[in-house]
Design a protein around this nucleic acid. Structure first.
Ligand code: MN
Ligand code: MN
Ligand code: MN
Ligand code: MN
Lengths: 220, 220
DNA sequence: AAATAAATTTAGACAAATCTAAAAAATATA
DNA sequence: TATATTTTTTAGATTTGTCTAAATTTATTT
C-alpha cells in the first residue's frame, strides 16, 4: 500500500499519541498536527478505508498492526535522516526536525538501506530517540527522568524530551549532551530543583522542569 | 517566492527545453513530463501570474531571468543529491534519477550549503552534467560528441547523454565511465561506427548511436 | 434528570493539480 | 486560397487535502 506525505504525517502522529493511551481522540491529533478536528475526521475515514486504523464514530481510534508497522517505517526514516544531518552535515540539534519532516517521505527502500549502512546502523538519533530497525523493532533501554533518579547514582544522559532551541541552549550551558555522565547530588524539596554533578564540571543546579526532560540510563 | 514540487518540475522542464530553442511549446513540455497539454496550459497561466514566465496564448513561452535562476537552483539540488547518492551511498548511476527527482524539492538553503560543503563542492554530477554554483553559474567546459571527434586525439569522457540502465550496461562493458581516457582510431563510413582505444584496454568498436551519447573534452 | 459544555462529525466550500472532450487558433496541404 | 491537420486553449469534472459553520453525540454539571 502507498501513502501520501499527508497520510504519513497523520499515521505518525496517531502512532506517537497511542503510545500513551489506549485510544486516541480527534482533538489530540488536531492539536499536535496544527489542523482542525474536521480535517482529522476526514483523514480517519480514509485511513480506515485503507485498513490500517480501527475507528468507530465518536469512540476514538488506533492504528492496527499494519498501521503501526508503517508508522515505525516513517519514524525509522525520520531518525536516520536526523542522524545524517547532525553527524555528517554538522547541523545543530534544534534545526533538523523540519528538514527530517520532509525527508521522511522520500520513498525508496534501497535509499534507506544504503543510508543506514553508510551511517553505521545507528541505534539512536541525535535527540536520543531509538531508531527502529528494518523490521520495526525498537531497541528498548530502561531509562528514567532525571527528577526521579535517586541521589549519587552515576548515569548517562540517554535522551531529552524537549528538542527546542531554548532547551539546547540550556543544555549547552550545563555541558550536557546525549551520553554525558552525571549524578544528582542534592534535591531541594522547596521547588523540586536539583543539584547535579556533571563529569569534569563543578556542581550546578537545574530546575525541576529541565530535569523532567532529561532522561538517563544506568551504565553502558 | 515559494513553489510547489509540481511547479518546480515544470520550471525545470521548461528550462531544459529552452536551452535548445528560443520559445518552448506546450506539447514538448507535456511529452517530457508525461502529462497532457491542457495541464501544461493551466500551469503556464499560474507561472505567468507568478511572474517567472513570458507567455502569450498560442505563441510559445520561456522563463524570464527570475525563472531561470530558480530553475538553476533546482538543478543544483538535483545534481548535488545525485552526487551524494553515488559517491557516498554507493548507488549505481542508473538508479539515482527518480530519488533525486524527489530530493530536489526539499527546501532548506542551509541544507544545500552544508551538503555542498560535505561533498567537497563538486563541479559535475555522476552523469558528467555540470552542477550550478550557489549563484546559478555553470562551469562551462568545451565538450564534443565522440562521433565528431577527429582521429587519434586523446580525450577524457566528460558526460553521457543517455542515463538509462541499458546505456550503463553498455558503457561498463566497454570499461568507459566519466573521466575515462580514450581516442578514436578509425571511423567506418558504412554505418558511422567507430573503433576506439580505451586506456589500458584493447581496441574495440562502438556504434554511432552509442558514440553520439558520449561527450568528451581535451586534456585536464 | 435536565441543562450545559465539550468533543466529534457532517455539510458544504475552496485551492491545487490533474484529466477528457470540445472549441479555437495556427500551420500545412491540396 | 480553401481545406485539412496539428497545436493549443477552454470548459467542465475529479481527487486530495484542507477549512468554517452547523448539527450531532457524548460527557459534565447543576
Ligand atoms: Mn513529515
Ligand atoms: Mn529526533
Ligand atoms: Mn522533481
Ligand atoms: Mn544527472
Amino acid at each position: 500500500m502507498n501513502f501520501s506525505s499527508s497520510e504519513e504525517n497523520y499515521i505518525k502522529s496517531i502512532y506517537h499519541l497511542q503510545q500513551s493511551c489506549e485510544l486516541v481522540n480527534t482533538n489530540a491529533v488536531a492539536a499536535t498536527m496544527h489542523t482542525r478536528a474536521a480535517s482529522v475526521t476526514d483523514m480517519l475515514k480514509k485511513l480506515k478505508r485503507k485498513k490500517i486504523l480501527q475507528y468507530e464514530r465518536y469512540k476514538g481510534f488506533k492504528l492496527n498492526e499494519q498501521g503501526k508497522k508503517h508508522a515505525l517505517g516513517i519514524i525509522r526514516k525520520h531518525r536516520l535522516w536526523e542522524y545524517f544531518l547532525v553527524e555528517k552535515l554538522g547541523f545543530a540539534w534544534d534545526k533538523i526536525h523540519p528538514i527530517a519532516e520532509e525527508l521522511e517521505h522520500i520513498c525508496s527502500d534501497e535509499l534507506i538501506t544504503k543510508l543506514n549502512d553508510y551511517l553505521g546502523n545507528p541505534a539512536f538519533d541525535p535527540h536520543g530517540d531509538p531508531i527502529p530497525d528494518q523490521h520495526g523493532r525498537i531497541p528498548n533501554r530502561k531509562q528514567l527522568s532525571l527528577n526521579i533518579l535517586p541521589l549519587k547514582q552515576t548515569v548517562k544522559v540517554s535522551a531529552v524530551g524537549n528538542q527546542s532551541t531554548q532547551m539546547l541552549e540550556m543544555l549547552k550551558h550545563y555541558h550536557i549532551g546525549i551520553g554525558t555522565q552525571l549524578s544528582v547530588t542534592k534535591r531541594f524539596s522547596f521547588d523540586g530543583s536539583l543539584e547535579i554533578k556533571v563529569l569534569k564540571f563543578p556542581n550546578c543546579i537545574i530546575s525541576a522542569s529541565v530535569a523532567k526532560n532529561i532522561f538517563v540510563h544506568h551504565d553502558k
